[in-house]
Amino acid sequence: MKDVIQLVEEHLLSFDGTQKTETGFHQAMADEAIVTELIFRTEAGSSAPVTVATIESRFTPDLTPDFSAERIARLNRRSVHGAFFLMDGQLGCRLAFPLREQEQDAGWIAEYLVTAFRLQGLLGFVTARAEVSKAEFLAARDDLDPPRQWATPLADTAFEGVARRLEEEGQVARAHPGWLYIPVALDGLGMLQGGDDAVINITTGIEHPLAGTGYLATLTLPPLPLWQPGDAWCAVLNELDREIPDFPPGLGAWALRGGGGGAEIVYGLFIPAEEGSATMLDRIARWMIWRAEWIRDTHWEPGTGLMPLNEAE
């Protein structure tokens, strides 16, 4: 954990425009239109204190569109490096990365946090504006110019290997070329027996419109009844996701995907990358399974589905 903080510090202090603060780092862009903070804070975990790295960007309200709660829930389908939120009329984006005491992947985590700190604000800002302006979308796409091809694509055997390991651990997992499918039974039955599954898909074959190539992982919950407020559910889940310290990294967002009265609640995680890594794939798969099981254990009532919102809150 200390390694991560140290590595992050080393990287960030070398960048112009980054200021060190008492609790982390501060960065402002475009005449303060985008302000990003990285904070390390220690919280009580389930068994031991946990240090959580939080990166949060805020955008000047008059430069971002007015988003309703429903549109925030939709905007989050394209989030990268955290979840969009509205607070006091101001749009923001936030991620939380719990750091373990003996972190095995300190190098990767530090690299991710540095990248996220530098890009979260910019990507979030243009993603929000691109929702309402095709011209801005095209301009941002040109400006960002992210990699659109994998430099080192992930071999199909990597997907097969991860699937096999998960199966050996008792999980249902299926590998397809460039794609991993993991259903998590929410009610002890699973979809094939007429139950409900949370469906995890992880693919390297879908490009983010603004962030380019990377890993796209989604966790899709069974459809909500029409009268359940999907947008409110997304907001609550994103909030809970951030509040629980002893949790998989909150690098994605709960969002509404699809439409037409049948929008689905999907946790989407996009990690930009151009070098394929089986370790990364394995790591993402486990984060997603953990999150699905959290939903199953804390928010799911067999036969009913997501429990009423007020109980979740």
């Binding site: 394209r78 796409r141 898909n201 879908i206 490009e207 419109p209 796209l216 995907r257």
Partner: peptide, 17 residues
């Protein structure tokens, strides 16, 4: 094609796209 690519991402949670 770019619009379709966006749709492809937005419905990326679905199998078979």
């Amino acid at each position: 094609d770019l619009d379709l690519a966006q749709l492809h991402f937005d419905l990326g949670h679905r199998i078979g796209c």
